[in-house]
Simulated assay, not measured.
Amino acid sequence: MTTEALVTLKEVSKKYGNRDVLTDVSLTINKGDCLILRETMVKEKVRSSEL
């Protein structure tokens, strides 16, 4: 069975100002893979009545 890559990232780095937030990250997402992205920092809370 061959795997079909839908997205491939190789050695990706990202800085915000002088702060390294990603350094040499590699990722391959293949057809049929499941990926969950989760934000861990909440900048402000929104009440459901404000939505």
Rank of each mutant, 00 (worst) to 15 (best):
L9S: 01
V7T: 12
I29M: 07
S49K: 11
I36H: 05
I29T: 03
I36Y: 03
L35C: 09
I36M: 03
K10Y: 00
V46G: 01
D20H: 11
D20Q: 13
R38D: 00
K14C: 09
T28C: 04
S48V: 12
K31Y: 01
T23N: 11
G32K: 08
L35G: 05
C34M: 15
C34H: 15
S13K: 07
C34R: 15
V7C: 05
E11H: 14
K15E: 09
E11A: 14
T28A: 06
E44T: 12
V12Y: 04
I36F: 05
S13E: 04
K31G: 03
A5W: 05
R47L: 13
K14M: 10
L27T: 06
I29N: 02
T8R: 11
A5C: 09
L27F: 02
L9D: 00
T2K: 12
T28D: 04
E50G: 07
T23R: 15
C34V: 15
L6K: 09
T2W: 01
E44V: 13
Y16D: 02
E11C: 09
D20Y: 07
K31C: 02
T3E: 13
S26W: 03
E50M: 14
V7G: 01
S49A: 11
G17E: 02
L27K: 07
L6T: 07
I36K: 07
V42L: 07
L35E: 03
L9F: 05
S26L: 06
M41T: 14
